[in-house]
Design a protein around this nucleic acid. Structure first.
Lengths: 341, 341
DNA sequence: TAGGTTGTGCGAAACGTTTCGACCACCGTA
DNA sequence: TACGGTGGTCGAAACGTTTCGCACAACCTA
């Protein structure tokens, strides 16, 4: 392990001068600096991050707190991690993957007490999440992927549900549909105040109203079976629904099966949209489903970047909303004739 | 930040004694130890990992080197990460997510030079991968998820392709099939010496032969379209094939579509197996596909654990093979009558 | 009673940085 | 000639641990 002392000796300067020369932290004569830099290069010198962190109180390590892979842990969630890791890496930071234990608060206390990380990246944020408050009080810099009910002046990057809902509604309205139904995430998830579930519910309803579409939004199937049952009940209670947006991959499977059982076809008899699912998943279906793809990696990148910005110096809080990308597949088409309400 | 010095003062002992008491690194009088522990508890003392690491040369941080999400980055790969992170966490270690840049060697050099990590976890290992050699020469402890052609005495955890192929073959043979085809990963992946592609090819062929099944193994479609075309060519050249194992999700989609175009049904006219895909994905299909699910999280856990074992002390190399789990779905059935060869 | 052994605790050094006050030579100016 | 400023460098302290040699008392044994 070659240390700064070796570099200094080889360049015939004091350790402190070598440090200053390499970090350009204070003026050093041009010739000296060159000598030091050459010595460092020749020795393949790498500053020891631990020593540096110990002294400067800054480790350039970020922690991504990710929840236990409880129910379903999708590709989507994982892309937060890879996006954040990439952005961090590009900016000279490292990303620590911290699985959340049974007691998230204790986990946080532990993690931040170690002096190992400069900041924390939160994901899977609930509307009434208590972690942000804890972090604020502890004075630990952090940012969120997702957001609480009232994020105040906390940095966050989240999906723009309003724009996403508008895009979805505009898409089906543009095809001529007059009545839209929306299947939310599972009832449990909704009850747990999971942000996307709550926000999507509100925004889809609002967007439908604004566009003058009739709307049904009170279904929250959490599985393929529940999805199939929900679809049958939907058709019974609202036979005039011609377009359906589903936010749960598995529920969509059930819907598709139920559609087939009924002798119907997609998109001729029903326009089906998949919300918050990756195009990779949408391609698994036949026909290929029209999808509102969440900008997961992008959100991860943004979250990491704004946290790093915050660490560097403090500007105003950054709060970014990014809409889902509408990927039109083969599951959307104008409604069939007979049902025009 | 409360440091060991504070604890020592409050407990009326020297810093070194406090350290010894807390770490039980050398005998300390029972009464003293209790006093120290109580002081530490009252102050909420957390040892500073940086200082500890600087001194002891051990940070208890592992790096997971994960490749850029080039082509497709599946759920499977990501579960390595979460599995490894969990296992590490349970053993008091942390996991650093290190995206691999364009130059993996340089990245490695950089990462290990920093003194930040105790060891490295490699994934996506190619048969002729050069990273293991580099790490061996650098004296950096590491383990692999996957393995090179000749892993020598390096720790690794990998899929047991032989057992997996035997299980798959036994499953279809048990149903009465006489001829099996296998669609490998894409030709590019195969050509790049990606371990799973090469090993699966060899082991499926061997298992089929051993079981006395006729076998076709030279298809490597990399997409839905290619999968469909491959299936059509397969039926043309080998009309007596009644069972097909596919190792690429997207290719499977193409196969299913081609089967439908032909007016056939699954499983009545074709038994279809999905290899190396998660049950979550398999459920997306209709009918639900029989799957050989890779033990991804398990491999991640094993990889982390054996690396930590290696760091603690050195036993013999650990080399673990774990077979895929056969999840029988609705896509496998006895062959239809007419084709019995 | 002298010498050795054991149990317990202390102080100082070390890990590799960064930071900060001090120092020195040199120059321009009064 | 003396003096303040300045650009460049140095040495020492500090960050929070662990480790190691040493000291001291008490106790046992010959």
């Amino acid at each position: 392990m070659t240390s700064l002392r070796h570099v200094a000796e080889r360049a015939q300067v004091a350790v402190s001068t070598a440090s200053a020369a390499l970090n350009r932290t204070r003026p050093v004569a041009e010739a000296t600096r060159r000598r030091v830099e050459q010595a460092a290069a020749e020795l393949g010198y790498r500053p020891n991050l631990l020593a540096r962190g110990l002294q400067s109180k800054r480790t350039r390590i970020l922690a991504l707190l990710f929840p236990a892979p409880h129910s379903g842990f999708g590709l989507t969630e994982m892309q937060f991690a890879t996006g954040a890791a990439e952005a961090a890496s590009e900016l000279g930071y490292h990303l620590l993957l911290s699985p959340e234990s049974a007691d998230p608060m204790e986990e946080l206390r532990h993690l931040t007490g170690l002096g190992l990380v400069d900041g924390v990246l939160l994901m899977e944020v609930r509307l009434d999440d208590e972690r942000p408050e804890f972090l604020s009080e502890s004075g630990v810099p952090f940012s969120m992927i997702g957001r609480t009910r009232d994020p105040g002046s906390i940095d966050y990057a989240d999906i723009d549900f309003a724009a996403t809902a508008r895009d979805a509604v505009a898409h089906v309205a543009g095809l001529g549909h007059r009545k839209l139904a929306f299947f939310n995430l599972s009832g449990d998830t909704y009850a747990a105040q999971y942000g996307p579930a709550i926000r999507a519910a509100a925004e889809f309803a609002a967007a439908a109203e604004e566009a003058g579409l009739a709307y049904v939004g009170d279904f929250r199937p959490g599985s393929a079976e529940a999805g199939g049952r929900a679809f049958e009940r939907l058709m019974q209670e609202h036979p005039d629904v011609t377009a359906l947006a589903v936010m749960d991959d598995h529920a969509a499977v059930g819907v598709i099966a139920a559609v087939a059982r009924r002798g119907w076809r997609i998109p001729e008899d029903l326009t089906l949209l998949l919300v918050l699912s990756s195009a990779r998943v949408a391609e698994m279906f036949h026909p290929r489903l029209t999808t509102l793809e969440p900008p997961s990696a992008e959100l991860g990148r943004l979250g990491a970047r704004m946290l790093i910005d915050r660490l560097q110096g403090d500007g105003p809080p950054q709060q970014r909303l990014v809409p889902c990308r509408l990927v039109v597949g083969d599951s959307s088409a104008p409604p069939r004739e007979g049902v025009m309400a």
